[in-house]
Nucleic acid binder design. Structure first.
Lengths: 213, 213
DNA sequence: CTAGTATTGTGATAAGTTGAACTATCACAA
DNA sequence: TTGTGATAGTTCAACTTATCACAATACTAG
């Protein structure tokens, strides 16, 4: 039932479907079609069906997919029915804003702590989270073996923060820092790249300008 | 010299190369090889060479690429030598944090304003930017014909904000909001999806756990 | 019960991406 | 000047991903 390997793109789309399904459930909808999911995600209905049929046959021909059933199936596939905790490293602008914004609508993730190495920040507080030294993460990693570290530290400090959380046993990292980081084998590292998104948007705009002539 | 169409993946990689080149330049390096760029970006050196050779021949065989020359070429390709201004819609946690963090290291982007529709927030201030009503964007769009709107408004308000900036003439939008948005043809819409990144990381962790057995 | 309609799941196909190997060119030193 | 090592640029095949079209199936109305 679970195929050997699925591309990251497919996983991302499953995450999008899950998000749409949560919204549909909140609106009280019981059934959703591949076409509706496709419209919401900006892709074709065939792509949606292909993604879902990779894992089994969840739909009913003629009507569609049962919202809550499909949602829990997708969450099962993603492994997010019991989501890992999220620790924020860096109690600066972005780190605090993330903690304050919370993780509602993400499907169960929750912040489990806010950490920093700056003595001037440790002991502070943000949205109910005390700012603790990064070394305190070790306790949390012992308790919640699996957690995700979100790195949002000062420019240039990213590698140091990454090395530290890795040495404490963290295996999954999401970096908001701009600099390219190096993680050892076995550690999953992803980036939120505002800079690159801006570049892609700019490139697209410039191309359109050129075409107009 | 400029090929008809280049995939978004290639553009993203060019953006990464540009970032690495800025760092190399800051370190005083004059020459960089495809292998070095590849190591920094986590891809193969052949991929780097193919990406660059798509647009011309910039390297010197036997030595490598001239850092500053390659950087300005890539910036030219991306169209970011004179980058568009960036307007932030939503003076909440994320919006203010973005403005406070600034855009250093991104290669010249700059924030040109902070906007909100909540009367309780308008008139406030954040890191030197007055919080202005979103309708004020129209002046800025007249002056800077091209700008990028970053949407970071309250959950559920994303579509309204998008519709408004589009009606004011904005053609490029980066949304931090979770909900799927609809943009008319001709408007470029991208997302920063923390939720999806967390899902991808979680899925990857769960798969590794499974493999261990 | 039957005909018609809507929707899924999938085989076939097209398009795109990546990887590896090869060739051409350059720098440097003897 | 010439030989050697290093690195860019190119080509082709394998692999991956996306798209299309259609058969199979279920629902619905009369």
């Amino acid at each position: 039932m679970i195929p050997a390997r699925v591309s990251e793109k497919t996983i991302r789309r499953l995450s999008h479907y899950a998000r749409c399904l949560r919204l549909a459930r909140a609106r009280g909808e019981k059934i959703v079609t591949s076409q509706q999911l496709a419209d919401n995600c900006g892709i074709s209905s065939a792509a949606v069906r292909r993604d879902l049929s990779t894992y089994g046959e969840f739909g009913k021909q003629g009507s569609g997919y049962a919202v809550s059933e499909l949602l829990s199936t997708i969450q099962e596939i993603l492994g997010v029915n019991d989501p890992p905790g999220v620790a924020v490293i860096g109690a600066g602008n972005i780190g605090c804003a993330l903690v304050r914004s919370g993780l509602e609508g993400t499907g169960g993730y929750r912040y489990i702590g806010l950490f920093d190495n700056d003595p001037g920040r440790i002991g502070g507080e943000c949205s109910g989270f005390a700012v603790r030294p990064v070394s305190d993460l070790s306790e949390l990693i012992e308790k919640n073996e699996h957690l995700i570290a979100v790195i949002a530290v000062s420019p240039g400090e990213g590698q140091k923060a990454l090395d530290q959380v890795v040495s404490l046993g963290c295996k999954a990292v999401l970096s908001f820092n701009l600099e390219p980081l190096r993680a050892p084998e076995g550690v999953d590292l992803r980036y939120v790249e505002v800079s690159t998104e801006l570049d892609v948007l700019t490139h697209s705009m410039r191309r359109k300008e050129g075409e107009e002539r």
